[in-house]
Simulated assay, not measured.
Amino acid sequence: MAKKIKIVGLDDLELKIKNNLDMKAVKYAVKLNGSKMNKKAKRNAEKFKGHYEYVKGKGKQFVKPTGTLKRSIELAITDKGMTAEVEPHTLYGGYVELGTRKMQAQPYLKPAFDEQKVQFRKDMDKLTR
Rank of each mutant, 00 (worst) to 15 (best):
M1I: 05
M1P: 03
K3G: 14
K3S: 14
K4S: 13
I7Q: 09
I7S: 07
L10P: 01
D12S: 12
L13P: 07
K16Q: 12
L21Y: 11
L21P: 01
L21F: 13
A25G: 04
V26D: 03
Y28F: 11
V30Y: 10
K31R: 13
G34E: 10
S35L: 09
S35P: 05
K42M: 11
R43L: 13
R43Q: 15
A45Q: 00
E46R: 03
K49I: 06
G50C: 06
H51N: 05
H51W: 13
E53H: 11
K56P: 07
G57V: 00
G57P: 05
G57R: 01
V63N: 04
K64S: 12
P65E: 08
P65Q: 10
P65F: 06
T66F: 01
T66D: 07
T66H: 00
G67R: 00
T68F: 10
L69W: 05
E74V: 08
L75R: 09
A76Y: 14
I77P: 07
D79R: 13
K80Q: 04
M82N: 05
M82R: 12
E85P: 02
H89T: 01
L91T: 10
Y92L: 06
Y92Q: 08
G94P: 06
Y95F: 15
V96C: 09
E97G: 09
E97I: 12
T100W: 09
K102P: 04
K102H: 15
Y108Q: 05
L109D: 02
L109R: 00
K110Y: 14
P111F: 02
F113I: 00
F113N: 00
F113V: 01
D114W: 01
D114H: 07
D114Q: 09
Q116E: 14
V118N: 07
Q119Y: 12
K122A: 15
D125E: 13
K126M: 11
K126F: 08
K126Q: 13
T128C: 06
T128W: 12
T128M: 14
T128N: 14
